[in-house]
Amino acid sequence: MGLFILRRSGVMIITALCLTFIVFVMTNLYPNLEKLAKTEGNFRMSDEAVASWLDKNGYGQPMMVKYGQWLGVLPGWTRDSEQGVTGRCLSGTVTVEEAAAAPSYCGILQGDWGYSTRFKTDVSEIIETRLGNTAYLMMWVLILMVPSALLIGVLAGMREGSAMDRSLSTFSIMTTATPEYVSGVIFIAVFTSSTVGLKWFKGTATAAMEDPNFENFFLPVLTIALYGVGYIARMTRASMTEVMTAQYIRTARLKGVSFRNIVVKHALRNALIAPFTVIMLQFPWLLNGVVIVESLFNYKGFGWALVEAASNNDIELLLAVSVVSVVVVLLTQLISDIGYVFLNPRIRIS
């Protein structure tokens, strides 16, 4: 078990390095840098001016060197000029003495996430507040989604082919066929617009960042949760129907155990092993939904930061966002693997 976790963690670190390197290369391609230079400097820069701006700000170095500096395994660049010293680890132009006092390594490993060119603050600050907002949203999504999906799945799967099964399965197929941007639009149209007249909820969740309440926060949560519910419910149903045809259930039935007790005491625990993995692997897709819903409901969270960073080619923020999302995805994969082994006694003991 220890070796297994160790090996998985090793693979995870390699994957994270590869993925961040890909993002790094793609954000540092020359046309992207040119765009950055023009937005930072001015839009009518000549090609030479762009090249010198990039050179002055440390973007002119080889790709691997830049990546190493961002990661914090190579010393940050410095540049002496007549006004003083500029550098990766220095803020603005400083004197030679101050530059000597500053740390020479500053990357992710040292906890320095860089500076956002879009928001003009430290990236770590943005990530912290935005991730907090999204974490709150996700918490409610999970609170709504997981129990209802499991309930639907178990109810549908306990009597295969029954009326309950057919109607709930149709419901779950319908939710998987409705992506967030469709259900979100329909919800906003029906529940918030003045034309329909059911003004039950607010159409934006901007106010929910300070003061989340049922009126302004329920629709975004519902929109994300609904798309995930169908998939988890179908997986739960499949695993429940499989368990219900198992030998030990038949034995219990023949012994005269009541149907209720069979479901609650014998079937449920075994049927919930597979959905656990599914829920964990659902996280990358939830992230997708978060980005859509946050821009649809104007909730300034992590997904919103991603959109802002990507559309303004804010390299450091984009890298930080991808690091966080990749780590979240890989961590949930790791947890799902370990959890599966832990929950399933057949694997755990052998």
Binding site: C18, L19, P31, I292, G303, A310, V321, S322
Partner: peptide, 23 residues
């Protein structure tokens, strides 16, 4: 697994821009 671990939306935002098309 590498591609699967990539959040789809981030990949789209990185790939589908005029600048990347230009490269």
């Amino acid at each position: 697994n590498l591609i699967l671990a990539f959040p789809v939306i981030l990949l789209f935002y990185l790939l589908v821009t005029p600048e990347i098309v230009a490269t």
